[in-house]
Amino acid sequence: MNHDPFYWGRPSDETYGHYNHAIANAKSQIPTSHTQQPIITGTSVLALKFKNGVAIAADNMGSYGSLLRFNNIERLIRVGTETIVGISGDISDLQYIERLLHQLQTEEEVYDSDGGHNLRAPHVHEYLSRVMYNRRLKMDPLWNAIIVAGFSDDRTPFLRYVDLLGVTYGSLALATGFGAHLAVPLLRKLVPYDADYEKVSEEQARVAIADSLRVLYYRDARSSDKYTFAVLTFENDKINVDYKQDLKVENQSWRFAENLIGYGSKQQ
C-alpha cells in the first residue's frame, strides 16, 4: 500500500500505470472563440453634416430577432457638452460603451481639472476606435457600428464612423446598418461632393433626415417610427445642442403597398 498522501484517492499506479499528463494538457480541436452574435439589436443611425453643424438621429427600438422587444431604448448618447455618439448593433454592448463613456467623462472633465479643457468629438472617436479595434484583435468584438458627431478643434463639423472591426471613415453623410443602403443616397442628393456641405442649411438637413427615417420605416423591417433627433450647431462662438426625444415619423403614406404584386395577397 502506498501511504504517500499525494496518492490518496487516486487509481493505483501498479494497476493502471502512471498517470499520462498528456491527457490533461491535450490541445482542444476546437479553438476557444468569443465571436458572438448580437442578441438585442438596434437598427440604423443616420447623420449629416451641414453649414455650421451636424444632425444625427436614431430610432428607439430594440429588436430580439424579428420581435419588437423594446421600444424605449435611447441610442444617442451625449458625451460632454458638444458631442453625440449614436450606436447601432448589440444593445448590451451599447450599454457597456455608455458606461465607458461616462467613466471617460468623469476622469477627463471632473478629476483634477482646473477647467479650460473638455472632451471633444475627435478625442471621443479616437478613444472608441482604439477600444473597438483592440476588442477585434482579441477576437471578442463589441458588436456595434458607431457614429460620433460633434465639432473639431477648429469648430468645423466633425462626423466619423467606427464599427466592430475597428474600421473608421468620415463623410458628409453617414449611416449604419440598413441606413447605409437606403438613407445615404438620399442624404447625398443634397450635395454631390463632400466639401460642399457648407451649402446645406440646417432646415434642409433636418428635412432630409426626417425623410430618410420615414423611408427606413417603410422598408426596414426592424425599424420603428419613434425616434430621437439631435442637431448640434456652432453659432456666435457657442455650441448649441438641440436634443429632441419621442419624435414620430410624420406624413406616412402606405398607399404604395397597394401596388405591390407577386406575393402575399396579390399574386398576379
Binding site: 483634477d112 481639472s113 482646473d114 479643457h117 475627435p122 478625442h123 472617436h125 479616437e126 478613444y127 482604439r130
Partner: peptide, 15 residues
C-alpha cells in the same frame, strides 16, 4: 496622441 488624438495636457502629465 494615440488613444485620444490630442496632445497631453501639462496638468495631467505632472499629476
Amino acid at each position: 496622441k494615440l488613444v485620444f488624438n490630442r496632445p497631453l495636457l501639462t496638468s495631467k502629465a505632472v499629476l
